[in-house]
Nucleic acid binder design. Structure first.
Length: 701
DNA sequence: CGGCCTCGAGTTCC
DNA sequence: CTCGAGGCCG
C-alpha cells in the first residue's frame, strides 16, 4: 500500500478535503497540498478512519505530483511524493545510534514479574526512596524489527535498524514508504532533535496477501511475517519495499533536544498527538496485579491480533525513577519483557544423526518429521551431547515435543506425553560404531562425554577445520558452501591449499564470475596479514581459542620458541594449566601439525608476534573492566587497544580490577567500582593510560 | 577443596 | 547463545 498508489477501501464522500485548485501562488498551493495529503494519509494509515474517499485522495496526490513536476524547485524532502521517489541505494550504510538501543531482561511468569518489581523497590530503597509510586506502562511486544527514527527540526531525516544496539543500518529510503510514518512533525515549534523508537512489522493479512501474490507470480514465498519484514526493510530499492506493505508502531522516544517530558506515558501521548502510530491498547497501570492481569490479557488476545506478538513489554513510566534505576549490562532495570510461553508442537523423531566436530567429537542431532512451530519449519534440532540425549530419553520412531521460543534455537524437549506409557519402546539411540563420514571405527575416551572419530584425515573433521579457519582468519566470502565445493573438487584438503587457489580456475565454476573469483582470492590473500595469535587459533589446536592463541603468541613471540617449549613452559601462559599445557605440547609435536605450520609459514602467514610481549606495555599486568558506551571507541576497539597495551579486559569488577572504564549509561559495574574504590576512567582517561601516562586521578564519566 | 569464572566449540540466525 | 571443562581464587 504505497502512499499515492491505489488504496483499497470505501468511498466516503469528500469531507473537508480538497479546496478547489487555485491559480494562486504555486508554492503556497504545494505546501497546502502536502499538508492535506499527509493529513489524510494519517487518517487512513494511523487512525484507520479516513475522512475522504480514495478518489479524492488520489486527486490531491496527483495534483501535488503534477505541481512538483512543473516546479521541481518546490519539491521538499518531506513531501509525500518523495515516499516512493527515492533512488535505490548501492549499499546499506552502517550508522551509529546516538544512544545505544538497549535490550530487555525477560520474565516468564507472574512470579518473575513480581520479583522484578521487588528488585526495583530494593534498589530504590538503597537510594533512599522508600515508597516509589510506580506507574507502569504495558505494551505489546511485536515480533518485528526495532528501528530508530531521527527528526531534525521536525523533518524526518534518518531511520536505522537496531543492528547490534550500537550500530545499525540506514534504511531511511524504505522507511519513507511506510504510510503511517510522519515525514514531518505537524507543529509550530518542533524539537531541534527527536529520536522516535518503534517496531516495523508486516501485518498478518498483508503477509498472507504478499505471499499469495508471490506464489501466483511463481516467486518464493516468505517463511513468516518477521522474516518478510526483515527482508523488505533491507531492500536496496525502495520501490521494491513499497510493494511490500510494512506497518509501524512507535513505542518511545530516545534522544531529544528541545522536548521536556516527565514520563514514558507522556512521551506516548506526545507521539500520538504528533501523528505517530502508537498502539491504542497501550495501558498505564498502577499496581503489579494490574500489570499481571494486562499481560495475561494480551496473552489471551495473542491469536486474534493483526500482528504477531511474542510478549508484553512493561516499563516504569516515570523518567526520574528510570534514571535512578539505571542499566545493568545492556538491560535497563526499569523495563522487562514478559515472554509468552514458547510455542510447541509434537512431531515424529525420524532418527538421530551424528556430526564430527573439528576434533572428531560426534555431536548428535535430531532428524524430525518437518513441523511448523512459531512461524518456521523445524526439520533438525541439536542435541548437544550423548548425556543430553540420554537425559531427554527420546527414541527414534516415537513422537517428541519440539519448541521454539521467539528467535531461540529449535529444541527437542522430551518424548510426547503419550509415548511414555508404552511398554515396548524402541531402544534408546546409541552413538555410531563407525564415523558417519569416513566409516572409521569410533572410540570413546575414558571420562569423555563424546564418542570420537579418531581419524585425523576424516573429511568431516577437515571440513570443520577449514570452515573454522576461514571464519577465524576472516576470509570474506569463504563459507560452508564453498568449502564443500573446494573439497569435493579435490582442490583443498588443508588450510594451506586455500592460498594456492587460482582465480582463473575458480571463475570457471558455475555461479562464479571473474569478479567474484578474484575477490575471493584477494580475501584469502589478505588473511596472510592476520596476527600470530589468530593464526595459532586458526590452526585448530584443541584447547586453543582466540584468547589462549593470543596469550601464547604474546608469551612465546615466535612459532619456533613455542614449538621448542616444554609443557612446563607452556603452562606459564595465563589460562593454561598442566592439563592444557601437555595437550597443546603434544598436538604441536604431531608431524602433520608441523607440516601444516611449515606449509603456512612458507606461504607467508605471520608466525611472529608484533605487539608488546606479555608482561610489557603501558598496561602490563593491569586488569580493566569496560562498562557503558564510550563516546568514540566501540567496546571491541577499546578491548583491542587495551590488549595491545599489555592489559587484560574482564567482565566483572572485583578487588583485582585496576580500572573501570565507564561510558554513557554505565550500570552496576560503575556502582561496584565506586563501592570497592576502584579507579574509574572515562574515554580520555583510558586514552591517557594507554599512552603510558599516569591516570589523572579517579575520573568519573 | 569448593565455587566462580573464563574459555572453547558447535549451532543457527541474520 | 548454551553447554562443559579446566583454571584460578578464596
Amino acid at each position: 500500500m504505497a502512499a499515492g498508489g491505489a488504496r483499497a477501501g470505501g468511498d466516503a464522500p469528500a469531507g473537508g478535503g480538497a479546496p478547489a485548485g487555485g491559480d494562486g501562488d504555486p508554492e503556497q498551493r504545494a505546501a497546502e497540498l502536502r499538508r492535506l495529503v499527509e493529513y489524510h494519509a494519517y487518517r487512513y494509515y494511523v487512525l484507520d478512519d479516513p475522512e475522504i474517499g480514495d478518489d479524492v485522495y488520489d486527486a490531491l496526490f496527483d495534483e501535488l505530483r503534477a505541481l512538483e513536476a512543473e516546479h521541481p524547485e518546490l519539491v521538499t524532502p518531506d513531501s509525500p511524493t518523495q515516499r516512493v521517489g527515492g533512488e535505490p541505494v548501492s549499499d546499506l550504510v552502517k550508522v551509529r545510534h546516538l544512544e545505544p538501543m538497549l535490550s530487555l531482561a525477560n520474565a516468564r511468569s507472574a512470579e518473575e514479574l513480581r520479583a522484578w518489581v521487588q528488585r526495583m523497590r530494593n534498589h530504590l530503597a538503597r537510594e533512599g526512596i522508600e515508597d516509589p509510586r510506580f506507574q507502569f506502562v504495558a505494551e505489546p511486544k511485536i515480533d518485528g524489527l526495532a528501528i530508530s527514527l531521527l527528526y531534525r527540526d521536525g523533518i524526518f531525516q534518518r531511520g536505522a535498524t537496531r543492528g547490534n544496539g550500537e550500530v545499525g543500518e540506514d534504511v531511511t529510503h524504505n522507511l519513507r514508504t511506510i504510510g503511517a510514518l510522519p515525514l514531518r512533525l505537524e507543529t509550530e515549534r518542533p524539537p531541534a532533535l527527536l529520536e522516535v523508537r518503534g517496531e516495523v512489522y508486516m501485518s498478518l493479512p498483508d503477509f498472507a496477501a504478499l505471499n499469495e501474490r508471490r506464489a501466483q507470480a511463481g516467486l518464493s514465498t516468505f517463511m513468516n511475517p518477521r522474516n518478510s519484514a526483515a527482508g523488505t526493510i533491507r531492500q536496496l530499492d525502495p520501490k521494491l519495499a513499497a510493494e511490500r506493505p510494512l506497518s509501524l508502531w512507535c513505542y518511545g522516544i530516545g534522544v531529544t533536544d528541545g522536548l521536556t517530558l516527565e514520563s514514558h506515558w507522556e512521551a506516548l501521548q506526545w507521539l500520538r498527538e504528533h501523528r505517530f502510530p502508537v498502539h491504542p491498547d497501550v495501558r498505564r497501570l498502577a499496581t503489579e496485579d494490574d500489570v499481571v492481569a494486562q499481560c495475561q490479557d494480551w496473552e489471551r488476545r495473542r491469536g486474534s491480533l493483526e500482528f504477531e506478538i511474542d510478549g508484553v513489554v512493561v516499563k516504569v513510566s516515570q523518567f526520574e525513577l528510570q534514571r535512578r534505576l539505571g542499566v545493568v549490562g545492556r538491560d535497563p532495570r526499569w523495563a522487562i519483557a514478559w515472554k509468552f510461553p514458547p510455542t510447541t508442537a509434537v512431531t515424529r523423531l525420524n532418527g538421530i544423526g551424528w556430526n564430527p566436530g573439528k576434533f572428531g567429537d560426534l555431536h548428535p542431532y535430531a532428524m524430525l518429521e518437518p513441523v511448523h512451530v512459531g512461524g518456521v519449519t523445524i526439520k533438525l534440532a541439536t542435541l548437544h551431547n550423548e548425556e543430553d540425549l540420554a537425559r531427554k530419553d527420546i527414541r527414534p520412531g516415537e513422537d517428541v515435543i519440539v519448541l521454539r521460543a521467539g528467535d531461540v534455537i529449535p529444541q527437542v524437549l522430551s518424548p510426547a506425553p503419550h509415548v511414555a506409557e508404552h511398554a515396548d519402546r524402541p531402544p534408546p539411540p546409541r552413538p555410531p560404531e563407525r564415523c558417519p563420514v569416513c566409516d572409521t571405527p569410533t572410540v570413546k575416551p575414558e571420562g569423555s562425554v563424546f564418542t570420537r572419530c579418531p581419524n585425523r584425515d576424516c573429511a568431516g573433521r577437515r571440513w570443520q577445520l577449514l570452515t573454522s579457519f576461514a571464519g577465524v582468519m576472516d576470509i570474506d566470502g569463504l563459507g560452508e558452501k564453498l568449502v564443500t565445493l573446494f573439497m569435493d573438487l579435490g582442490w583443498v584438503t588443508t588450510p594451506a591449499d586455500l592460498y594456492r587457489l587460482s582465480a582463473e580456475l575458480i571463475a570457471q565454476q558455475p555461479g562464479f564470475g571473474e569478479v567474484s573469483a578474484r575477490k575471493l582470492v584477494e580475501a584469502i590473500d589478505r588473511s596472510r596479514q592476520q596476527p600470530f595469535g589468530l593464526v595459532l587459533f586458526a590452526l585448530g589446536i584443541e584447547e586453543v581459542g582466540q584468547v589462549t592463541g593470543r596469550n601464547l603468541a604474546q608469551r612465546f613471540r615466535t612459532i619456533d620458541a613455542l614449538l621448542a617449549a616444554e609443557p612446563e613452559a607452556i603452562e606459564q601462559t595465563p589460562g593454561v594449566g598442566p592439563k592444557m599445557a601437555r595437550s597443546i605440547h603434544d598436538q604441536l609435536a604431531d608431524p602433520r601439525m608441523r607440516a601444516l605450520i611449515e606449509d603456512l609459514r612458507g606461504i607467508g602467514l605471520r608466525f611472529q608476534e608484533e605487539g608488546p610481549p606479555l608482561g610489557e606495555g603501558p598496561l602490563a599486568g593491569r586488569t580493566l573492566v569496560l562498562t557503558g558506551t564510550l563516546p568514540h571507541l566501540t567496546r571491541e576497539q577499546a578491548t583491542e587497544r587495551i590488549i595491545a597495551a599489555g592489559g587484560r579486559v574482564t567482565g566483572s569488577v572485583s578487588r583485582r580490577t585496576d580500572y573501570v572504564v565507564a561510558g554513557e549509561s554505565a550500570g552496576s559495574k560503575l556502582a561496584r567500582a565506586e563501592q570497592l574504590g576502584v579507579s574509574v576512567l572515562d574515554e580520555d582517561g583510558l586514552l591517557a593510560v594507554l599512552e603510558g601516562e599516569p591516570p589523572h586521578g579517579p575520573r568519573v564519566a
